[in-house]
Every structure is written in structure tokens, then in C-alpha cells.
Design a protein around this nucleic acid. Structure first.
Lengths: 295, 295
DNA sequence: GATAGAATGGAACGTATATTCCACGTTTCA
DNA sequence: TGAAACGTGGAATATACGTTCCATTCTATC
């Protein structure tokens, strides 16, 4: 039944295949081909019956069209166009590509071959980074840097899975000369470490689902004391998000319950170096920081 | 049945409505709300059953969620998100792409500008990951996993810049049930924490140039006590490399004097999950670990 | 600690959908 | 012009989906 040896596997390939074989199609099939080329989004999103009515053909004709291209039915073709739609979208098919990646991983897991596990994680982290670059706006970043710059003292916390990110932030901010206190929770001294937090300070709380209790409480306390809170988290409705003056959302893909931290650390480093540059620029303009100076 | 007076009629309104009423939702409904906010495209394109499985809830729960927002069912809500996706796709051909174009212009603006610092880091981390995938051999990884698997107790250490990596390793290995001791150096108790290390144990030492003194000393001590040492480092001739039975070299690319940790963390995660798979496979084959099976 | 109420999971249900099948119409070649 | 092959429309069918319902579990209140 397959018309040709190779079946199109991407939206672009499909488009090319239709153009190439257009002349060999029957009249009705050509009519469908024109519709697919002209309104790919319709075919991607709407139900087959709707597409049939909108293009003026029978549903069965569309199925025949798909089979003529080598598919088993119309639905595989639809899925292809859906993925293509997402790829053009800003979200970039991130979810879909992760889905496919996970599916591939499952298959390999069944085969028992962990040889290329590394390659797969590399791929997944690359996707997460790409997604970060496209979803995080410059305005969000600039606002975060401004908050950090204005803070008299920086408090940083993050437990469990967020701990590596928090420790990296603390270490790096100290390196660039920012007055930073790392609330590491050692010895149960969290509240003591946070004791002096005041209205001129900023707390950066890193937390991912499930959100550590200590972090939530600390954010509450800090907000109660009048301090500003900046959270790096995975959801806009995380417990911290509401109390925070600014939220940086990071989407790390998850495989078998293990989420990566690549995107978070990339963001963390961007924050640190953005701050360093900001200060450099400020001190280059004038001796005193324009934000603080009184005269 | 309608929860509120007005039912959201656009994707943006829906988003706002969810955020506003989030607190009034039950636990499961909040879980769904998070998923909808974080993965709107999934809900728009995938079938309800797929969304349910991906978000870890029942299909009926999603229907309840939609009804709680005032819809007659889940499908009207889906249609809303679908239309929103389409609108973004077509209409943004102008607005969004102009914005991206402007962003590209800013990127060209210059080195001093921190406008697209994020893009720069994303690019750099992506390269680092790619490099990791190409240089790290399967044999190196397999040997490392084997060492970890055979160790009775795992000791993990890494200070300064390596601390986030070490803490991630410690946390993750504990999560998958490996007996792990995180030598964090709190209270100057490093040598005490390392006191019981013996011939059947493995020390994973993470260290980058300039190599922290404490790490070097600890590796010496561990090697002296007969323990095996696996190092994750940036040079084959680092002080630790000679004493280690196995070295995993990670080359993090450097931008403006700041090195990333993306590749190291990707490697770390690969190690953890490789170990988890290895154990899973072993326990699936037989009750006892077949690692040493003779037949 | 007991009880009323809400929330939840999962099976059962009805429906809408994609697909298949077949009779009819159209084209093509002898 | 006749006959055979191909293409087409629409009904029939099987499937997959969204939705509903109810027993059970969880939560809050007394």
C-alpha cells in the first residue's frame, strides 16, 4: 500500500513529498493536497470530520490521501503536523521532543542497553538549555539582576535537590564580591542564620517540587520581616511564588523521577555574571554607584 | 455548576483565572493546575488520556478541574488552549518574530552589553555537553559504574567550585539507595568523616583547577587507607589523577573566566542513573547480584 | 476519637471519531 | 463503443475517547 519507499517523518518532509508527488495524484487527492499545503494548521488541530467539511471532501478521502503517502491512516499524518506546529511555536516542541526522547529511552531500557545513556542525557540537557534560552526573557533577567544589585545583603537558600544550585550561587556571588550569606541549614541554625534579614535585603530561594518545608518557612519569615524575595523555581504557583516579588521559572525535563539541573545552573551563572558586568559598568560611569549615591 | 460568574474565554484569561483561584482548589486540582500552567501545549495537543498519564492523575480529575473553572467539560478548555496556540503561531508571525529580531539585533550590539548573556551561556553549555558526549567513552563510564556498584560505602567530596557537583552526587546516590557518606567538611570534621574509610570503599573526589588542598589531602589519606578513588576532574594530570584508580575527565568550556558545571552535572546524573539501571537489571535477572556470576 | 462531608480513583457508559467496505460513477484503452 | 480498471461517496463498523457515577479514602470538625 505504501506509495513510496520512504515515509515523510517531519512536517517539512511531508510538504516536500506532497509537492513532489502532486502530479501523480487523482483530482480529489490533489484537492486535498492543496488544502494540506494551504492550511496545515487546520489539519493539525481540528478533527478529521471538521477538516473534511472545511475542505469539501469526505473523511475517507483524507484517509486515502494519507495512505497514498505511505501512512497507515490519517492520524499519524496529523501527529506529524502537530509536532511541526509546536516546533515553529516558541515553546519549540520542547515537550514533544522530550516525550519522544523518553519513549526512546523506554525502548532502550527494555533492551537492557545503557551504553548510550550519556548521549541521551546530553541530548536532554541540551533541550532544556535551549528551552531556557527561549522562554526566559531579558526583562525577567534584568529585573532579577537589579534586585540583587540593590540588596544590601544577599541571603541564599535551597535544600535537597536545589542545594547544588544554591551552593553554586552562594559561592559565585561571594567570588564576585557581593555580600552574601549562604543559609545552608547546618546544625539546624536556619532561623539564626536568617535572623538579621531586613527590609534592605534580598533572599534568593531555590526550590523545586516537592518544595522543602524549611524553604517555604524561611520565605514566609523573610517576607514577614519586610525583605524582598526572589525565587528560582519550577512553577508559577509554587508556595514561594506568591510571596516573592519576582519569580524565575525554570523548566527542567524529568526522566524517571530524576530532573536535571543544567538549566538552573546556566541561569544561576548568568545571574552572577550579569551582576558582575552591571557593577563594572556602573563603576566605569562614575566612581559611586548611581543607585546609592545621595548627591 | 459554574464556579464563578465569568468563564475564561481566551488562553490568557484561563491562565489568569487558574492563578487567581489556585488557593481555593483541592490538592489534586492544584496538581492539575500546575501542570496546565507549566505544560499548556501538552493539554492543547494531546488527548485527555495522555495528559492524564503525563501529569499523574485520572482523566476524571481533569474533567473535574475544567468544571471547577466553569466549563461543561474538559474539551471546551482544550479547544481554548488550541485556539490560543494557533493564534500565537499565526499572529506571532509578526509580533513575536519582530521581538525576536530585535533581540538578535541587541545581541550584535556588543560585548559589554549583558542583554543576551543568557544566550551566550546557553550556547556555551550546549557546546560543553556536546563535547562531553563525544569524549567520554562508554568503557570509561562502565568502569566507573562498576566501581561504584562494588563499593560497600561511597564517600563523596568536592569543595569550592566542585561543591555543587559533589552535593548533587551525594544527594542522588542516597536517593537511589546507595550507601553514601557526603564529606562536606562542616565543622572541620573532614578527617573524622573520612575516618572509617577502608579497602572495600570508594571515594569519589570532584575537583577542578585550582585543586582544593583539602581534597588532595583526603585523596591521599583514602588511597593510603587502601580505598579506591574515582576522580571527576578537568585534567588527567591533576594532583588526584595519579592516585586514583579511575579518572573521568570533564572539560567545561570557559567564558570570561567563568567555567560552567553543566557537563559535570550531566555526567553526574548519568552515573547515578546508570547505577540505578545496573542494579535494576541485576535484581531482575536473579535474587543475588549476578555481577560476578560464573555460569 | 468519632462522624459528616468532601475528594478521589477507577470502572462503566454513551458518544464521537477514524477507518473500512462496497456499490456506483468515471475514465481509459482496445 | 464496450469493458475493465480506477476513483469516489457514503453508509457501516470498530475503536478510542470524554464523561459520568459510585464505592472508597481522606480531611476537617466536634
Amino acid at each position: 500500500m505504501t506509495g513510496s519507499a520512504t515515509v515523510p517523518r517531519t512536517a517539512e518532509e511531508l510538504r516536500a513529498a506532497i509537492l513532489e508527488r502532486y502530479d501523480t495524484f487523482s483530482k480529489r487527492l490533489q484537492q486535498i493536497a492543496r488544502f494540506v499545503l494551504d492550511h496545515p494548521d487546520d489539519l493539525a488541530l481540528e478533527t478529521l470530520a471538521v477538516v473534511a467539511e472545511r475542505s469539501g471532501v469526505q473523511p475517507s478521502a483524507i484517509v486515502r490521501f494519507a495512505k497514498a503517502l505511505g501512512y497507515s491512516g490519517a492520524m499519524p499524518m496529523q501527529r506529524l503536523l502537530r509536532d511541526g506546529l509546536l516546533a515553529n511555536h516558541t515553546a519549540l516542541g520542547y515537550g514533544e521532543r522530550v516525550r519522544q526522547f523518553n519513549a526512546a529511552l523506554d525502548h532502550q531500557a527494555g533492551a537492557g542497553d545503557d551504553g548510550d545513556l550519556l548521549a541521551e542525557f546530553v541530548e536532554r540537557d541540551t533541550l532544556a538549555l535551549e528551552n531556557l534560552g527561549q522562554t526566559m526573557t531579558k526583562a525577567d533577567l534584568a529585573r532579577a539582576v537589579k534586585l540583587i544589585d540593590q540588596a544590601q545583603t544577599l541571603y541564599i537558600m535551597g535544600f535537597r535537590r536545589a542545594f547544588p544550585v544554591a551552593s553554586y550561587l552562594a559561592y559565585s556571588f561571594q567570588q564576585v564580591g557581593k555580600r552574601t550569606i549562604f543559609v545552608d541549614g547546618v546544625g539546624g541554625l536556619t532561623s539564626q542564620q536568617m535572623g538579621a534579614v531586613g527590609e534592605t535585603d534580598l533572599l534568593i530561594a531555590v526550590s523545586y517540587h516537592p518544595y522543602a518545608e524549611e524553604t517555604v518557612h524561611a520565605v514566609e519569615a523573610a517576607a514577614g520581616a519586610g525583605a524582598k524575595v526572589l525565587t528560582i523555581t519550577d512553577s508559577l504557583v509554587s508556595p514561594m511564588a506568591k510571596m516573592a516579588v519576582h519569580v524565575l521559572q525554570v523548566r527542567e525535563s524529568e526522566v524517571r523521577g530524576f530532573r536535571s539541573l543544567a538549566a538552573s545552573l546556566c541561569l544561576a551563572q548568568t545571574l552572577v555574571i550579569s551582576l558582575a558586568f552591571e557593577r563594572e559598568r556602573a563603576s566605569a560611569r562614575g566612581v559611586s554607584r548611581p543607585r546609592r549615591r545621595k548627591a
